[in-house]
Design a binder for these strands. Structure first.
Lengths: 349, 349
DNA sequence: GTTTAGCACTTAACCCTATAGAGTGCTAAA
DNA sequence: TTTAGCACTCTATAGGGTTAAGTGCTAAAC
């Protein structure tokens, strides 16, 4: 649909504009192009591109700026082969190479590394097994009416929470309830556990103690912590640097978005594609006006039988796509490798 | 040293300037003053105040602006009686009135409330007993080489962390080490525990197992988590709203400060006064240039035998001191009450 | 001896205008 | 089909004039 030359020109416009942030004029462009044409020819071609909606002008006599559609076309058809420098790769490998005690540390640290590399805001989501099951629940007394509740899932995650029993607790009844929970719920997917917690479990508990509330709240809080998608954000502040005009209303919206993990992880879930790196531009991300001038680059990382996770970068529509996509892609591969090692080392027999 | 009239004039300048942000001129001021004088008289008096260093001009023919010294004098001598509205008090009481499961929730939520009320950035520090002692350490096996390490302090705090044992661990040796830790360290202040962890403990562990590292790391991480001052920040973003000129270098400095709990809690410790509310202005806070145009209002809250905590608000030098101080003061009292109740209810016999 | 009215002076902020520079679209020639 | 040339548009910048708010100083009034 576009001629070869028009492709080259659009490509040059996007590159130039993402690099400088200034509208691109015909004369400068004519010099940068890989073939020799006059500025007048470039002007004609730019007219065509504008007609087709790939570029716009900021005012009637300004240079051209890529439109959302132009970015889209660029990302889909004109992207440079992903190049990332050896230096970047070394940084990634080193940062992921240090020793971690817990998965959470790796994932959380990853968000920071990725935001540093891109200088945008980065998100990481823990690899998620389709259905994690409850594999054990126990309550360890610590003396002085304090107990610690410990929940273990078959994916190997452990959640715990301290709790102080009210004065009138009957410890025998408590033991009975814990046995009951283990009988009834071990082996069940966490989703089921959470459902039944509002369903038949309260009734069963009533057999043993008058009020189910205090203890069930505790159990509930531990279960939901284990079930929650683990979500990390790095480089929140980077949003400031490139939002130039500092439209403070939009910024507020954005930051409150970043502070609500549920919304955000939903956003990522809905934007991620099955595999590889995925680019969403402006309104493609969500209906929210505040995201209009942002692009979201998501990617999954695949840790075999241990599940798939998500990494993502949120930056301005006007970003160097080749580099950012290259970084995200390199990162997902390294992260997958690293995690596979981790899981193998710790969880396999 | 200043006449009564000069006091009134300085007071009016500070009030006016903190309210509007505009330099205040003699004519307007003459009208606002509680006694009848001409603008010329005000001008003369302002000349004296400037001579003495309490006010400055932004340029040779602008109105007067309070200097750091002027703010200091105002806060020390000219402050209105603290007035907070009934509404504010209700908000505080309601927000603190909802039910919490853990101390941390109350303290963390408090930072949010306080920042909402003041629309500045707020900090809260958990009440701290002078010397918390280790009262127990145990390791509960969860199967599949996973264990959970649980540490209890005599203040009633519990920290836990999951851990996967390397393949070659000798469980008998592990039990012996745990017994040894309990023998040697229970009853000791956490500070001592941390010191000995780098000192004689590694040697003792070597009696039982070849390498002490993996396990001691775990113990160390749990101990230091328990010993760390618990620190919360609310309303980080509010720094944006009032830093008007958006000097992005300073902002970066500030935000990186907010992200380093150690620096910040050190800052608070060094600024807090023994009791009541304390105001530090500009360079009084720290040597850091980035804080030059900020004021820090700190206060302790006293929960009797359960220790003392800190709350603080960081806002622009140009802030309505009476109101902010009033809010901080009201808040510390309500928070102390609330926590006393909480501790009594849960920890007393 | 204060206080005040009056006045000359200073500065920032605003608006208006002129101009330079970058870019465009169009036309006609190559 | 491409290019040179030209008239036109729009932004950004700098300068000039005006206004409004403020100051300091002096001399008169209280």
């Amino acid at each position: 649909m576009l001629t070869q030359r028009q492709n080259k020109i659009l490509q040059a416009i996007v590159r130039q504009y993402t690099a400088t942030g200034q509208p691109v004029g015909s004369k400068h462009l004519a010099e940068k192009l890989p073939f020799k044409v006059s500025s007048a020819t470039v002007r004609n071609e730019m007219g065509v591109l504008e007609e087709a909606g790939f570029v716009t002008k900021e005012h009637s006599s300004s240079g051209r700026v890529p439109s959302k559609k132009g970015y889209r076309y660029y990302v889909d058809h004109l992207l440079d082969p992903e190049v990332i420098t050896d230096n970047d790769l070394v940084v990634i490998q080193n940062s992921l190479g240090t020793s971690f005690q817990k998965i959470d540390e790796i994932i959380s640290h990853s968000a920071d590394i990725l935001s540093d590399l891109t200088s945008y805001t980065a998100f990481t989501l823990k690899p998620e097994q389709a259905d994690v099951r409850l594999s054990g629940f126990r309550v360890v007394p610590l003396g002085n009416r304090k107990v610690i509740a410990i929940l273990v899932t078959d994916s190997g995650d452990v959640e715990s929470q301290a709790f102080t029993l009210p004065r009138n607790y009957d410890t025998d009844a408590l033991q009975a309830v814990i046995r009951m929970i283990n009988d009834q719920l071990v082996g069940q997917p966490l989703a089921n556990v959470m459902r039944r917690l509002n369903d038949d479990i309260p009734l069963r508990v009533m057999h043993y103690m008058q009020s189910a509330d205090g203890f069930l709240d505790l159990f509930d809080s531990v279960v939901s912590r284990a079930a929650r998608e683990q979500f990390f954000v790095g480089g929140r502040l980077n949003l400031l640097d490139f939002s130039g005009k500092h439209d403070s209303v939009d910024l507020q919206t954005l930051y409150s978005l970043l502070d609500h993990n549920d919304q955000l992880s939903h956003l990522l879930d809905s934007n991620v594609s099955d595999d590889g790196v995925n680019v969403k531009i402006g309104s493609e991300i969500s209906k929210d006006k505040a995201l209009d001038n942002y692009s979201l680059i998501t990617a999954t990382y695949d840790v075999d039988q241990y599940g798939k996770g998500i990494i993502a970068v949120l930056g301005p529509t006007r970003m160097p796509y080749s580099r950012t996509i290259g970084l995200v892609n390199a990162f997902r591969q390294e992260l997958a490798k690293r995690l596979l090692n981790f899981y193998r080392h710790y969880y396999d027999s």
